[in-house]
């Protein structure tokens, strides 16, 4: 599984990247998209909505299952990736790049550093896969 360095992760298989302007971009990890299989539908939040960390932010549906996507941080949605609404397969093809889901403005910027590093996420994946 691809677990890029330099970004943060959650145990629920979301990734989170800090942008230069201080906002964070998030999506689902390579492991998550692979487990789900072909993504056929993505339900994104509305710009301006506020979410607590750990609350349900979006939904990704594959031919096999519906998966909730949890907000890695507390904050306000400032942008959503409209591309994946039209082309949900981009979540499978490019989970860390073109398949991003939501950009947020953090209410508590210190939350970011508390998310998992690539190394601890890898350890978490190994423990999940047994």
């Amino acid at each position: 599984m691809n677990v890029p360095e330099g970004i943060k992760y959650t145990k629920e298989h979301e990734w989170c990247r800090k942008e230069e302007d201080g906002t964070v971009t998030m999506g689902i990890t390579d492991y998550a998209q692979d487990s789900l299989g072909d993504v056929v539908y993505v339900e994104l939040p509305a710009v301006g909505e506020e979410y607590e960390s750990g609350s349900e932010l979006a939904e990704v549906e594959s031919t096999k299952a519906t998966a909730p996507v949890y907000s890695p941080v507390t904050g306000k949605v400032v942008a959503v990736n409209e591309l994946v609404e039209q082309r949900p397969e981009r979540v499978n093809e490019s989970p860390f790049d073109e398949g991003w889901l939501v950009r947020m403005e953090m209410a508590v910027p210190s939350q970011y550093s508390k998310l998992l590093t690539a190394e601890s996420y890898r350890v978490h994946l190994e423990s999940e896969e047994g």
Partner: peptide, 11 residues
């Protein structure tokens, strides 16, 4: 086997 190459491609 639930899938080999992927559900959409197999469908």
């Amino acid at each position: 086997p639930v899938q080999y190459s992927g559900v959409l491609a197999e469908h």
